[in-house]
């Protein structure tokens, strides 16, 4: 399988994507979710308030998105879930990028390290993503930190591959050679000349990592290997309501709808970034 490379680094400069419908949809949706996640708790009900008498209600003026099997308000839980999903997406994307770029720079620039880093990379890529995440998540007590760690590790090799391929092209480009000849240190070459040119090609990859992380957290939590039970995460909400699916299918679909729209929004931003990079 080949990695796309471009021979001319100049066409990789970061350009602002055109303001298209998809970009507005993506950024708008994420903005609304972020505001809801941050400030939703002010005007919504307590996502953990139990009210068994009101269990499994359909949409009403009291509970806009109905109630779950323990009578908790689904709108409040789903909004609290937005905060968790966005946090996981951003944290995983950030950590995977930092570690992936460091390893990619080392592998691409210091040729002796290349075979070691890339063989380990291949080994990690050989383990199915979710299986690796599930195994890592099981190493300690369920928590947000463990979920972020478990989802970050499988994504690092993907960033390493893209970063290394770009560095391999960049190190042969005239401006890097010019910097080398004029006596710049390796550290300065890497941080001042190579790193800024990785922003454009990586920005696309990073949005996909973010989307995968949001889906991954939901998947892990759904099978019970992610966040602890009762946490208002979208995966947990689906998992705890699946027993009531026959009576109250909306309890599952409400969280699923939010999850799908969020991932659509993140990948819409990614697609627009890719288009503007091409």
């Amino acid at each position: 399988m080949t990695v796309q490379t471009s021979s001319d680094p100049s066409d990789h400069r970061f350009t602002m994507p055109r303001l298209s419908f998809r970009l507005i949809f993506g950024l708008g949706t994420l903005g609304i979710l972020a505001i809801l996640g941050l400030f939703g708790s002010v005007f919504l009900q307590d996502p953990n308030a139990l009210a068994p008498a009101n269990r499994l209600q359909f949409f009403s003026s009291d509970h806009w998105l109905g109630t779950d099997g323990l009578g908790r308000d689904l709108l409040a839980r789903v909004v609290a879930g937005a905060r968790i999903s966005l946090a996981v997406g951003l944290l995983v994307a950030a950590f995977a990028t930092v570690f992936g770029v460091i390893l990619g720079l080392l592998a691409g620039y210091f040729r002796r390290l290349d075979p070691i880093i890339m063989r380990v990379n291949d080994g990690m890529l050989a383990i199915p993503e979710l299986l690796l995440a599930v195994a890592l998540a099981s190493l300690a007590q369920a928590s947000l930190t463990m979920v972020v760690f478990a989802l970050t590790v499988p994504q690092i090799p993907r960033i390493v591959r893209v970063a290394r391929a770009e560095v391999l092209v960049l190190r042969k480009s005239p401006f890097v050679e010019a910097a080398y000849i004029s006596g710049s240190s390796r550290f300065k070459i890497l941080t001042r000349h190579v790193l800024p040119n990785l922003v454009a090609p990586l920005s696309v990859q990073v949005t996909y990592v973010c989307a995968y992380a949001i889906l991954g957290e939901a998947g892990l939590s759904f099978i019970g290997a992610g966040l602890p039970a009762n946490t208002p995460s979208w995966g947990v909400i689906v998992s705890e309501n699946r027993t009531f699916f026959m009576q109250a299918p909306w309890t599952v679909f409400v969280a699923g709808f939010f999850l799908t729209v969020t991932v659509l929004a993140v990948s819409a931003v990614g697609d627009e970034l890719r288009k503007s990079a091409e």
């Binding site: 989307a211 889906l215 998947g219 759904f222 699916f245 299918p249 699923g256 999850l259």
Partner: peptide, 22 residues
Amino acid sequence: TSLAFALPGFIAAYILIYIFAV
């Protein structure tokens, strides 16, 4: 394709169960 990528497997599964099994 965009929708299929964004739709989590377990949600797609429940939608199919709802329509074709229930």
